[in-house]
Design a protein around this nucleic acid. Sequence first.
RNA 1: GGGCUCGUGGCUUAGCCAGGAUAUAGCGCUGGCCUUCUAAGCCAGACGCCUCGGGUUCGAAUCCCGACGGGCCCGCCA
Length: 586
Amino acid sequence: MTITDDFQNEIREKVSAALKDMGSEGIDFVVESSTMEGVDMAVPCFPLAKALRNAPQAIADDLASRIQPAGLIAKVASVNGFLNFNIDPEALIKSTLDEIIRCGPCYGSMPKSGIRYNVEHTSTNPTGPIHVGRARNPIIGDTLARCLKRCGHDVTTEYYVNDVGKQVVVLTWGVNNVSDEEAAKNSEEHMKEIGQNEKERDKTDHRLVAKYRVANKLMESDPAVQEEISDMMRRFEQGDKEVIDTVRHTAEIMLDGLRETLGQINVVLDRYTWESQYIADGSAKAIVEKLKASKYAGQTDDGAWYVDLKDFGVQGKNTKFTFTRSDGTTLYTTRDLAYHQDKFTRADRLIDVLGEDQKLGSKQLCSALEIMGFDKLPDALFYAFVSLPEGKMSTRKGVVVYLDDLIDEAVARAYEEIKKRREGMSEEKMMEIAKVVGVAAVRFNIIRVQPEKQFVFKWEDALNFDGNSGPYLQYVHARACTMLKKAGEFEHDTDASKFVEPSEINLIKILSKYEEVLRMAGDEKKVHMLPAYGHELASAFNQYYAAVSILNSNDKRNARLTLVECAKTVLADVLDCLGMGAPEEM
RNA sequence: GGGCUCGUGGCUUAGCCAGGAUAUAGCGCUGGCCUUCUAAGCCAGACGCCUCGGGUUCGAAUCCCGACGGGCCCGCCA
């Protein structure tokens, strides 16, 4: 419950009472935050016109005359058919600042809900390094998880590792049969193809993917290799423990590389769940039996089982959702059902962060769970694909930017900036800050765009450190920190009468909105609201900073420093929620 | 062929779900501001038939219908 909620409730009560006075009890109306400058909340009176048989302006005038400013309502006015309200600035200022001082980093966070959330994200196939197209997934997923925690939920993040299927088998064959020399040669060609002169980096995922590329080529050109891989596939399907373990082991090595990359951008997952587990423990088979027993189940002439989902809103020429092959073995989707069943034993609500290509699959999954009698279904957050200006990202066509390269480039760029402006700073310190700043630029650039919008990756934008960017927010944090350091000890002063500058009142109003933003970003899954808020906050701080001399302000010094500290506290939490560091200098 | 989704200044983008007053911000552009708390900054300015056409409404960027343009999907793949 924020002060804005209280304010809104007071307006609601007053307007209801006034309407009752006017003999129109119980009429519905809305209280909305106003876009007009100098107005906080408004009740549009146009919808009331019909019921009251009067002009909107007249109604607003009438209502305004019946409502006296009291409590949080400082001013009531009738303008153009709107009933406008202003919040008591003193109450807003005092309660906001006191609350931030009282809560510290937890300001804006909501009380424990007791709800267990499971956020599955990233889950890329362990067959190659993460490229910027895939990077949207961990960044959205990790940010959402951080927001949900602040909404009071218990959140677990999870990566579903696909260690079953042809791709990982091919990878495994490559790792065991392709020589280092062959891989190195392929690596060189590949780097030339994607237009880079450097050597492919010495990191497990990059090393292994070279062997995967070679294996794929050999499989196409050499029937003997094709046969070996098919044989492995057969043994895998039959449950040959040796093959299954080898494949899993390979996937684990690959995953080490991916985990390292994710760690670079501050994404750490709580749990890794292996797809092969659901074959081993028989739960995928149990799903098959359950679905077979349903009235929607059927079998093709070849013996493959499916459920028909035409009654579940699945459209198109093929409404059948197949869950076994004709030989009775399970499919990826069958295992995914077992996986979701498992997740529901560990969490109350599931969120899957998925590429938009998974939309139909996700719907089918939900329908199948419904058929099996699940009362709760997973929720999905879809994001549109990332492409490059030259077109769709594709490792095969050599149109690709690896996340590792993007991070390196951003950090190098940040290092240049620091070196330019901070003479005499130690090399070590500069590197440390560059890392934090570069990563922030990368994450911010991706999270700032609404997930459902298509995203064209541009180096120019990703390496932008100005304006609406991660480093911009960090810069403000650093500014606040150095100012507080220079100020030394001071007493908190939240006396509202000391805050009179428009820029400081604006800043405080923005601070007061943080909880609402977290609720939108978390519970409403609108993750992109958070970077927008961060920019708004940082921008307001910079305006304040430019307009008011803070350290030399006599009787207002403590009050202003208090505001700087409060802004710093909130901004630090915004940065943390975005998975970005909050440097004290830069 | 069918389904889903996006379309907002030169470029990127908020607002759309819960319709309201002058459509948000950034990049880029023009001009100004560092002997004063970090100029990764601040201030001022130019730039918009909110893709198009209908409809609903006192009122539409927002809701409905239709077109056009981009993306994604319609495997006994994962």
